[in-house]
Structures are given as C-alpha cells and as structure tokens.
Amino acid sequence: MELDDLKATWKNSTSNHTSTSKNKIMELSQQKSYGPVAALKTALGKQVMIIPFLIVVLIVQALRKPDLQADPFFGLFAGIIVLASAFFVSAYFILGNMSRSDAPVADRLKSQVRSLGQLLWCYRLVSLAGVVMLAVFLEVFKGVGTARLMEPWYEIDSWLRWGTYAVLLIIVFILSRSRFHKDFGKHLDEIRQNLSAIE
C-alpha cells in the first residue's frame, strides 16, 4: 500500500464527518485543562498555600514572644520562607513559558525539556539550600536561642555531625530527583523521545 495512493481517499474521508455545534465548541474551550502544565500548576498551587500559613506562624510567634526575633532560628525560619517563595516565583515564570502551545512543534519540545530541566534545577537548589541553611545555623549558632535545645546534638563528634549533614544533602538531592521523576519523568521521557525523532 503506497501512501500517495491513499491521499485522495484520506481527504474524502472528512466528508462523512458531522460537526460539533459552535455552542459546544465554546463550551468545550471553557473547560479546565488537563495538560501537564495545568497539572504542574495544580501541584504548585497546593504547595504555595503553605507560604501564607508559615508567614502567619512567623508573625504570631514574633508578636507573642518578642525575644524570639533575636533567635537565629527565627531567621532560619524566615529564610526558608524566602527560599520557598523564590522557588514559587521562578516556577510561575517557567510555567508561563511552558504554557504557549502556538509554536512550531520542535521549538515547543525543546522549550518544554528546557523548562522542565529549569524547574527540576530550581526545586533541587531550593531543597539543598534549605539543608545547607539548617546545617550552617546549627553549627554557627551553637547554644544560642532555640539551638540550646539541641545540646545532645553537639555532644556528638563534629565529624559525625558534618557527615550527617552530608548524608542529608545526598538524600535530599536524590529525593528531589525521584519525586520530580515520579511526577513528570514519564512526560519528560516522552518529550525527549519525540525530540530525538526530530534530530
């Protein structure tokens, strides 16, 4: 069977189609998207809810116990909020770039691979920065403020403590990758597969 021989039959096959009414087209266009970008937006939308909650906790604690403001861990908490907010802002712009679907197919595939890579990079960077901040605060502010509650931790040999921080970093690195891969790995693999079919 030759493809060229079927061109006419293929084109005529449209004549059997009945059409969807314009009202239904309008109705369908207003439905919710179930594409990967929408899924990412939903997932991030759920996570972003934690920010106002954390800010409220931070303010309430600061008002209730003014001396807390001098506690380094209060700074750590605030730093984590800033980090998380930075991630959500970056994700917002990355998702904005991914949303456009009126570009040539090859360009869109490349842009999606790039955007998902950026998103993973941001996610991983923020997670790792959180662990580094925790380690720095624990080690720099020994015996100050809330760190006083960690007294047994400082009794452990410093090599073991630093080793634990390193292991924690590796775990977070792996977890951030596997979590992302679980959610979007299959989709990313499919995009890469299609991209390799182009190149």
Partner: peptide
C-alpha cells in the same frame, strides 16, 4: 499537534473529565 504530542498526560484519571451532556452532543 503540540497538544497531541506533548500537551496531554498519558496517565489520566479514570473519571470523565467532560460533562456527559457535552460529550454526547459532540460530533
């Protein structure tokens, strides 16, 4: 084509995403 190739997730929920009355009115 962008939607068909990279804009739709393969793993979908089993629930109907479109109201039945809308689906039945489609061509």
């Amino acid at each position: 084509l962008n939607t068909a190739i990279s804009g739709i997730r393969k793993k979908r929920r089993s629930i109907t995403i479109m109201p039945q009355e809308v689906m039945s009115d489609m061509a």
